[in-house]
Amino acid sequence: MTEDMIICRCEEVTYKELAETANKYNCSARELKLRTRAGMGYCGGRTCRNMVDKLAADLTDERQTQITLKYQPPIRPIHFGDLGGGQS
């Protein structure tokens, strides 16, 4: 039951998938995200980022001074129509 529990709601990535991937590849949070797509969905990882962080195997000291899962613009989804300054 806990195994099938969803961690990333947007991409429906389960606890099992994340735990196994972290274990198999000894992943950093970033690698874990890229391998599973957890945190790469519609919300931009706002909901699951802390959990993906915790499940990552590689908890180095760098974590203290660097946000492990980088934020990239745009931080909110943009409609293509709104991109080039066009009328929405």
Partner: peptide, 24 residues
């Protein structure tokens, strides 16, 4: 709760993980 730092993170501002304050 955790501090919503996404916009600040885009600026290159230095961050520190401080659990006593709830996050980065």
């Amino acid at each position: 709760l955790y501090p919503l730092a996404e916009l600040a993170a885009l600026t290159g501002c230095p961050f520190y993980l401080i659990e006593e304050l709830g996050g980065y």
